[in-house]
């Protein structure tokens, strides 16, 4: 699927995700045909607030690739606007899954200097999302 607008957005410091322009269903990465309403080529890119919650998380204890030395966390974050992202959590003791609470409110931080750029999420100090 074409995620260039997302990657280009990260380079510009923006978290851009997509929904169906016909029915509004969050769909990311964006398919050319909406799985809900069947509309074709109606992908609508928008800039997300960056607020979200942790939907699930794991901690890699095995190093598969040299550029990702273990341990490191991987999470699925659900954005306030609906789309979910595979991402990394910042500001944690990375090697203990017990430090990561599902439902935890998090906020996006864009690491634009990396190649490719990426978005990570940092837990909000207050805890649960409103």
């Amino acid at each position: 699927m074409d995620v260039r607008p997302h990657v280009d957005g990260l380079r510009a410091g923006l978290l851009r995700v997509a929904r169906c322009g016909a029915c509004g269903t969050a769909a990311f990465p964006p398919p050319r045909v909406c799985p809900r309403c069947g509309a074709r080529d109606t992908v609508e890119w928008f800039t997300a607030s960056g607020r979200g919650t942790v939907w699930s998380a794991v901690v890699f204890h095995k190093t598969y690739l040299a550029e990702h030395p273990a341990p490191y966390p991987v999470a699925v974050v659900e954005l306030a606007e609906g789309p979910r992202l595979v991402t990394t959590l910042a500001g944690l003791l990375a090697d203990d899954l017990r430090d990561i609470r599902i439902g935890q409110a998090v906020t996006a931080e864009i690491d634009a200097n990396r190649e490719p750029p990426r978005v990570v999420f940092r837990p909000d100090p207050e805890g649960e999302a409103p």
Binding site: M1, V3, W55, S56, Y64, V74, V86, T88, I102
Partner: peptide, 28 residues
């Protein structure tokens, strides 16, 4: 999945990790 451009930058490259994400959600 379909889009390594979204997952590879986070080191999410293994099907076992996908299953682990499902289990952790199930546990929650």
């Amino acid at each position: 999945g379909t889009t390594p451009a979204l997952t590879a930058p986070h080191g999410m490259t293994s099907p076992g990790a996908f299953s682990a994400l499902m289990l952790q959600r199930h546990r929650h």
